[in-house]
Write a protein that binds this DNA or RNA. Structure first.
Length: 510
RNA sequence: GCUCCCGUAGUGUAGUCCGGCCAAUCAUUCCGGCCUUUCGAGCCGGUGACUCGGGUUCGAAUCCCGACGGGAGCACCA
């Protein structure tokens, strides 16, 4: 029986079998292991040392989303245990960026507020013989780690270690560190007696000069997750080698062990996320700051016109896999466009304007809707016989061509002058099929420059053309728009940043 | 170099833990078509993938071994 015959036979016997069922994509995150509804606790632990970017957003959104999914609790924890790197401004900046993102936390605290607890646990480790004070030089420590060799400090008895620990609080910075007695022979370099605490003299943005001995990430990351009741801490893949340390520390301390999980770092093509790459761009004036719309910082994305919800949906489509991938920005744009489409007001913006004189044009006042289908209001425009149309479209016109001024009437081209000016004649109101429909402005317009954020890096090199601008005329009505994303018809979505005579527009995407 | 992680269409992603319902999901890109007073959105359709080689099994994207490829870590940063 041939395929067609089989189909026909099936059609008569059981037609329902011919319909291919479509499985609906489930956008929610996969189930968590060891999760109990109402008992899940997650946390987002940024270090207040810079502005949050899309990578942080991924972590924060996933953490928050899981807490909601299981009716649990979500904690914002500032991991501020290195006073040399952190500064006051970032605590609030990070919180406000998270609020903009729509991430809401149930609790918030600073790791630096718990140093006494860390000291207490450090002393427990010391007295148990699980930690020691090492006074070797940095180079010696490094060499010994490489050679898998224990140093003399390690074998001193706990009582001596405790004495050395007390002395650390008065010792000059750099002269001693507290190390975990791990496994110096381990293949995992992270286990070769990692540092638990060190001396730092810098003033802390919150604690001031109260402390000099600061615990490290390996120590407090594990302790804080456990102490604060976090059940499902997430971190990015580069910490995977430290998992063993994490659990070992908790094990020696007799503390509860959370279900630790990892996901890959989020990378977007041409958009650097690291301060190492961004800082020089700012210093050299190649970007305007951390809120430059070409940057994937939350501030940059916001300025560009990205909706927080788009970032959330995008992050959720990425999920929690460990596969490292580089996404192109159009994935984010597509989501953003769908969100923006029903709520962005439509305006006319004419890039590279060319003058159009219409013979027989009526002087009239037209009312144009801000949106073709949604009730977003409207604006009025008075028209006479002078218009401006886009240069790119004008260059395709020739004498005799019929086109339409969108939402107005048809025009037939009579002639085109040397200077580019187009002379045409009014050619009826009815919509003619298959004609160009052009956006237009009248003589009563505003000059506008649109910044088009491009990729900052192409093939690993700074892209000199990342800050393209398009100049043109916009209809007057844009003057009443403040900090809003609009759609310039046939041009693209743009965020209008300021009002008055100084309008800035950023091209969000097509 | 050592250790660890990861390899599903152009790009992402679901499925991999607990092998069969996978003739492999969804999105995006691209290409058609429809609709439309926008080159947008929407609707319909199409192209397109389990890195390779062995093994286990009645049956492998899924389990095992190896190769190859990519990434990460090897701090008194987080």
């Amino acid at each position: 029986m041939g395929l067609e015959a089989q189909k026909a036979a099936l059609e008569s016997l059981a037609p329902e079998l011919l319909e291919r069922k479509k499985k609906a994509r489930n956008y929610s995150l996969p189930d968590l292991p060891n999760a109990v509804d109402g008992k899940v606790v997650t946390r987002f632990p940024p270090e207040p040392n810079g502005y949050l970017h899309i990578g942080h957003a991924k972590a924060a959104i996933i953490d928050c989303e899981y807490a909601r999914k299981y009716n649990g609790k979500f904690i914002l924890r500032y991991d501020d245990t290195n006073p040399e790197k952190e500064s006051k401004e970032f605590y609030e900046a990070q919180a406000s960026d998270l609020r903009w993102l729509g991430v809401e936390w149930d609790e918030e605290y600073c790791t630096s507020s718990r140093l006494m607890r860390h000291y207490e646990l450090a002393e427990q480790l010391i007295s148990q013989g699980d930690a020691y004070v090492c006074s070797c030089s940095g180079d010696t420590i490094k060499g010994n780690r490489f050679d898998r060799r224990e140093c003399a400090c390690r074998s001193l008895p706990p009582a001596d270690q405790m004495k050395r620990w007390k002395e650390m609080f008065l010792a000059p910075a750099g002269t001693a560190i507290l190390r975990l007695k791990g496994d110096i022979k381990s293949n995992n370099t992270a286990m070769r007696d990692p540092t638990l605490a060190r001396i730092i003299d810098a003033e802390h943005p919150v604690q001031g000069k109260k402390y000099r001995v600061w615990p490290t990430y390996d120590f407090v990351g594990a302790v804080e997750d456990s102490d604060s009741g976090v059940t499902h801490p997430f971190r990015t893949k580069e910490y995977e080698l430290r998992d063993e340390v994490y659990f070992y520390v908790l094990d020696r301390l007799g503390l509860r062990k959370p279900t630790l999980m990892e996901f890959s770092r989020l990378a977007i093509e041409g958009m650097p996320v690291s301060k190492r790459l961004i800082k020089p761009l700012i210093d050299e004036g190649r970007v305007t700051g951390y809120d430059d719309p070409r940057l994937p910082t939350l501030r940059g994305l916001r300025r560009r016109g990205l909706q927080p919800e788009a970032i959330r949906q995008f992050v959720l489509t990425q999920g929690t896999s460990k596969v490292e991938s580089t996404v192109t920005f159009d994935q984010v744009e597509a989501i953003n466009r769908k969100l923006l489409d029903p709520k962005a007001k439509r305006f006319f913006f004419v890039p590279s304007p060319v003058r159009l004189i219409v013979h027989g044009a009526p002087n009239s006042k037209v009312t144009l809707r801000f949106h073709p289908t949604e009730e977003l209001g409207n604006r009025e425009i008075e028209t006479s016989h002078v218009f401006f149309i886009p240069g790119a479209d004008a260059s395709a016109l020739a004498a005799g061509t019929l086109f339409r001024l969108k939402d107005l009437y048809n025009v037939r081209v009579d002639r085109i002058e040397e200077d580019g000016t187009i002379y045409g004649s009014h050619a009826g109101e009815g919509i003619a099929p298959d004609t160009l429909k052009l956006q237009w402005v009248t003589e009563d317009h505003v000059a506008l420059t649109v910044s088009k954020p491009g990729l900052l890096f192409v093939d690993g090199k700074y892209n000199e053309n990342s800050a393209e601008t398009v100049t043109g005329y916009a209809e007057k009505a844009v003057l009443c728009v403040h900090d809003e994303v609009v759609q310039f018809e046939r041009f693209g979505f743009c965020r209008i940043e300021s009002c008055g005579r100084q309008i800035k527009a950023f091209y969000t995407h097509k």
